[in-house]
Structures are given as C-alpha cells and as structure tokens.
Design a protein around this nucleic acid. Sequence first.
DNA 1: ACACCGGATTGAAACCTTTCAAAACAGATG
DNA 2: CATCTGTTTTGAAAGGTTTCAATCCGGTGT
Lengths: 340, 340
Amino acid sequence: MSDAARSASVKDVAAAAGVSLGTVSNVLNRPDRVSPATRARVQDAMRELGFVRNESARQLRAGTSRTLAYVMLDAGNPFFTDVAQGIEVAAEDVDLTVVLCNSANRADREAAHLTLLEQQRVQGVLVTPVDPHSATLDDLVRRGTPVVIVDRTRPDASLCSVSVDDELGGRIAVEHLLDLGHERIAFIGGPATLGQVRERLAGARRAWAEAGRPEDDLLVVTTAALDVREGREAGQRLAGLPARRRPTAAFCANDLLALGLLQQAIGSGTRVPEQLAIVGYDDIEFAAAAAVPLTSVRQPRQELGRTAAALVLAEATDQAHTHRQVLFTPELVARASTTG
Amino acid sequence: MSDAARSASVKDVAAAAGVSLGTVSNVLNRPDRVSPATRARVQDAMRELGFVRNESARQLRAGTSRTLAYVMLDAGNPFFTDVAQGIEVAAEDVDLTVVLCNSANRADREAAHLTLLEQQRVQGVLVTPVDPHSATLDDLVRRGTPVVIVDRTRPDASLCSVSVDDELGGRIAVEHLLDLGHERIAFIGGPATLGQVRERLAGARRAWAEAGRPEDDLLVVTTAALDVREGREAGQRLAGLPARRRPTAAFCANDLLALGLLQQAIGSGTRVPEQLAIVGYDDIEFAAAAAVPLTSVRQPRQELGRTAAALVLAEATDQAHTHRQVLFTPELVARASTTG
DNA sequence: ACACCGGATTGAAACCTTTCAAAACAGATG
DNA sequence: CATCTGTTTTGAAAGGTTTCAATCCGGTGT
C-alpha cells in the first residue's frame, strides 16, 4: 500500500525481514546459499515493500552489465528489424537483454547513442554504422567495449564484422537472368557512394562478362536513393528508351527500387515478367506480397544478427581476441517476377 | 596510448589535472562554475586518459536517468517503428535518449523488459502492451515509474494512454465507400479478440446503418490474423461468392490484408477498383507503393509517439498528476484503389 | 590595515549494491 | 564435553559519481 516516497532499498528489506543486508543480497544473487526459511522471509519482505533492485548500484559494484545494444541504421527498414530479431534470439539464450537504438542514418545520433552506451558499460555493441570507417568505433574498442559491425565491413579487418557477400549477390542475380535467356539487362541502383551498391554492381558486371556478353548490353541506371519513388522514375527512364535498346530484365539493388519499378510497369501496362523481368534484393516481407511476387536475393538476416551477437560475446569474454570477419552467402529466391 | 586495465575514473582525472575530484565533477556538470584555465586542464586530462563517465555511478548518486524506453509490440511492423520515431523526435528535444525494446507479442518478454527498465530507473516507459489490462503496468506505476500506453487504451482511464479512434476510422472508411456509391461491401479482419478489429468493424457497421443500408449488405469476412496471406485467402473467399452477392468494395482492418487482397485480385484478373474497390488501414509506406496505390485510413503515427513522450514526461515531473487519455483522429487517404 | 565579497575550489558524505573474510551456529564425532 | 565440520549469517569495505557546506583567494571599499 505504500506509495514509496523513495523506493525501498536492500537495507529496508533487511530491516523488515530481521536479517542483515548481506543476506538480502544473497537471496538476490545466490539463493541456494540461504536457508529456505529466511529466504522466504526475505522474499515476503521484498514483496511487501515493493522492492526493486537498483540496477545502477548493482552494476556499479558488480562491474558487469546484462545488456547488449544494437545501433540500427534505420529502424523503419524491415531488414534491420529482422537482424535485430536474430540478435534478440541469441541474447535470450545467454540471458542478456537487448536494447535497440536507432541512428536514422545520422552520424550525430549514432555517435550520441554510442557515447551513452559506452557510459552505460554495456557488454557489447553491435552496430550498422553510417560510416564503417568512423574512428568513433575504434575509440570504443580501444577503451574496452567490444564492437561488431553488422552488414558492413572493413577491408582491413580492424574490427569484427558480419556481413553478406554483396558481390556474390549481384552475381547470382545476373546469372539467374542469364539462365532465363535475357540478352539485354539493366542494373538499377545508387548512389554509388554506397559500398553495397558498388559491390552488387561489380558482381553483376563480372557475371555478365564471364558469360561473354557485351558490356553495353548491361545498362546501368543510377538512382539518387534506394526507395520506391526512385524505382518508379527508373521505370520511366527504361520505358523512354527505344525498343531495340530497352532491356528485357532489370536487377535492382534493393527491393524498394524493384517495387517502384514494378508499380510503374504495371501502371503503364508493361507485362511482368513477359516484357520486363525484375529481380530485387533483400527479399523483404513485401517482396512476396507484391502484385507480381518478386524474385529477390535473400540475405540471411536473422542469422546475421545471431552471429553478430555470438561474436560480440566472444570478444567480451575472450581476453586475447583476434577480430573475425564473417561473410554470409546470399541466396536467390525465384518468384513470378522473373519466372512467370 | 594506454589500453586501460580499468577505465579511468574521476579520481584519476583529478590527479592527472592536479585538481580535486569535485572540480572534475563540476567540469562535467556545471562547466560555467569552473575557471576556463582549469576547465581546459581537466578536459585535456580526460582526453589523455580516455575518461568515460560511468553512467551507473552517476545515476546512482544523482538518482535521475536520462533515458526513456519504448516497449514495442512488434519491431517488424512499420507502424510501430514510426511511432518510435515520433518518440525519438520528442525525446531529442528535451535531450533524453530512447531505448527501444521489442516484446514481439510475447507477454513474458514484455514483462522481462519492463522489469529491467524499472530496475534501471528509466524516466518513463511507453508501451504498446500485449494486454493493456495487465497488472504489471499498474505495478510499475504504483512503484513510481511513469507509464503511458500507446495505441491501446483502458476504458477505465486508470493509466495515461494515447490512441487513435478506431471506431471513427471504421466509420470514415465506410463513408468513403458510400460516397462512391457502393451498395454491397465487405469488412475483412480478425481475429475478433483484437479490440482494434472489433472497433473498426463497429464503426463500419454504424456508418452503414446510419446510411440506411440493409445489414446483410455488409459482409463480414473473419480472418485468423492480420497478414498478407490471410488477405489473399479472403480474396479467394470473395471470388467464390455468386456474383449477385459479391461485394463491390472491401474495407480491410489492416493494410497487410488489403495488400494480400489486392494481390489476389490482380492475379486473378479482377480489376481494381472497377470490379473491386479496396480500403486498407494504417497507411503503411507500402500502401502507396502497391501495384494499385492503396486507399487507406492513416493514423497519425509520429504524433502518437510525440504525444506519448510528452505525456510520460509530464507524469514524470508533475507530482500531482491525473491520468489523461488522448484520442487521435484518423484520416482517410484516398488513392487509386478506390478512386480509379 | 581591515573586513568583506564573490567566485573558484575542496573534501567528505551519500547513493545502493555486491563481495568476502570472519563469525556464529548446528550437528556429528570422539 | 571438547572438537571438528559444514552451513548460514554477518559486517564492513568498495565501487565512481554528485552534492553541498566549507574553505580559499584575490580584490574592493573604508
């Protein structure tokens, strides 16, 4: 019934239960060490007083935190929330809780989050950084917070990372289109400042070249962003081409682009996949739900998260730790937008 | 260059800068109180030693935390991530950080998160609960943590809440279809255990009745969930009806259902909206990106978040606080799926 | 020379928990 | 009854920060 001017502390509980404060702590942390009778008495007192353990004090003294953090690039993007779910699954297994932070693509917010997380002495930080080369990340690690980069990587292996082979992804998308007999295709994506976009394009080009196709038959349409609107606009650009130069298939760097392209195609009466086959990337949930279910390159999102969590825990426990870069393999999911 | 056996404390900084430990604290918290010269000296020492303030200790002593938490029902649902963004915007204004927790629709995970948040003494908890009537929420409040329910509410006003008028949403959807002259419509949604679904249906029924339409011309198709697959199946059920009973429009309790329905319609050659008009609910990003852009009932998601944050802060500061239930008004966004 | 002032700095207490060595206890053994 | 053994409980210290009353200091006004 008490409405607690200041919430009850271990000391209060100890007084109420008629035991020493050390015993209360034992009930909390090593219940087997205390006799069943007193344990019950203490627990009753806790209930009675509405005792809530003060995590700050616990952590200050014990020096260890029970949480893991994931700083997401964009909480609105289903890709990252799936990764987050993988992290949560892994964390649950080892009884850690996960806090999610959203940088919303802003370096300043990312930095603010990282600072606070470091001050909170979290067990480890998983992050999909705005810029994987940011020195902020190195600072964290140097001062003792384990960090794992998710869905990005550093060529120099100076940090742990978990990512997906984007070049391979580009390659299998194009190989799929080659298998279907397409002879003129488009790559749609941008801006080229995004490593992901560059690598997917590189993979696409390589596959195209290895198949002996002329370079010019792989048309590159550069977009300003990876969203639906840009996809629609790319569709209009394709539609504006003279028929003999118009590609029969498009590989989009991202499902959102693909959805935009699909929308434009359907709206203008272009038949998919008969007149235009479309391959997306990411295989987000809505890819399968599109008017014409979308062929897409799937990344093992949950597994990305699970592995990243495992890695950060390894780094947190192993003292002598060497950074590992895990690279996952993407997988083509063929649906009606290419196979009719 | 130090790789910090144990990270530097205020005391270390004080020693290095040749000042007392109180001064270091002042540099941290009231920089104006300390002369520019010493301030600079202390800051140099901090940089030098790689000092990172220990948030646990700070919070333990100061008794106040700088974070707000949002326990989301489903981090994978764009609706909730938009709400979260609204919260973040509001929090940024008052210089708080937001941690996001995901209950993934599981009461046990929700409870675990709430427990930890309470132990962390966060400033306030925003939550879209699995069950708005859960006593766990009352316990939190009783022990002094401000709580605001988001996108749900309690009829008894026993807690602050911010939600959207679902009955009104159902009503405006149906009024829109009535305006367009439809005489036989379907409501698609379920399960009926969801308050949201029940209220949207209630609003739909009321609007229909008020327009003097016969009750039987509002066909209710109950689904097992609010996802794309169920939408497709509902579409098949509609298609299986004899033409004279088949509705000319469908109001779906959710955009995912609407997308599934749309997919089924397009796939089977039904013209939207000529043969079947579709209204969704939520206006998620993909609603506009659908093959036929979807008419939908939009909820002010970001504003929901912003207001919830404001409410929880009010509750945190005002001692004598009476619970408020804020009800937002949904809004119809007309697109091609009804207006051709 | 004095008292006084205001701003800058100091030092110790307090926040709440965990930890650990030591003490108390209960029961068994000789 | 003394000893020992193993279990349970205790008490004090420690952890890093903030707070606040007290001190210090350089300068002013008389």
